[in-house]
Nucleic acid binder design. Sequence first.
DNA 1: AGACACGTAACAAAATATGTTTCATGATCC
DNA 2: GGATCATGAAACATATTTTGTTACGTGTCT
Lengths: 147, 147
Amino acid sequence: MPSDSRLSRVLHLLIHLDRHAGAATSELLAGMLSTNPVVVRRMMAGLREAGLVVSERGHGGGWMLARSLAEITLLDVHQALGAPSPFAIGIARDDPRCLVEQAVNTRLSDTLREAEALLLERFGAISLGDLAADFDCRMAQHRSHLL
Amino acid sequence: MPSDSRLSRVLHLLIHLDRHAGAATSELLAGMLSTNPVVVRRMMAGLREAGLVVSERGHGGGWMLARSLAEITLLDVHQALGAPSPFAIGIARDDPRCLVEQAVNTRLSDTLREAEALLLERFGAISLGDLAADFDCRMAQHRSHLL
DNA sequence: AGACACGTAACAAAATATGTTTCATGATCC
DNA sequence: GGATCATGAAACATATTTTGTTACGTGTCT
């Protein structure tokens, strides 16, 4: 069960973007994720199309937020990434002939859908501003710990 | 995002087991899933250890339910399969040094945990007897449709 | 013109679920 | 007791998918 880490990685980048003066290059962002600039561009492409960020080419170019963090929810980001199914659990095959399998599929799919609805509702209720606030809190604690 | 179909496949088998007189061989069950007997044994091994089914070797051997369907919940089966994370979404890395990443990870993990709790609660509330009832209903409709 | 940075496609590598083969162990039938 | 049947388990092969990488094109700024 390989898990899709794009959401967490993109969220990480967006908050850094907020604190960054001017445009941040894919190469810089890739360094934060310990990965390749092309991977960053791939992940950010959906966010650009969704209007969450803008990219500029050429000298001094890079990535910038198109809105404030407070105006972006986890749901926005999730959908910008293509709203992939959040579940690792799935049915064996669609449209089986076996009526037993049909009954299992239906009930399982319904239950997963319900859980997904809750998850997306929660995603919609959390803004990146909230995450940034979490970070600020950690930073404050980190500093006081150094005294 | 490949999804783990073991849960749906095993549920399918268990209901068939209930309707089957005597022990059902791995080969017979594999036919129902269009797969290999070894795959069936692998999936069923956890259920045997959890006491949901029993297996007998030799002539006339095979798989049988250890309890009635009404006494087995989806949660039981899920746990017997090793209780794998139901999510395809995950964090990029554990224990990151970056405080931003820490904040993102924490909030995301918490939210996923909450959705997982709901899902498992629902799983606990659904018995295989319920699924069998769903099947019987479909079967009745199927028959009336043939008239 | 030249350097910079994104956009895109094609390719490579790594991880993992699934499928397959093989042999060992135990149970039943004759 | 030997033959047959079926699970148990390990080793190996395959297929799919995610992630990483390379290469080249396009646009922008100095």
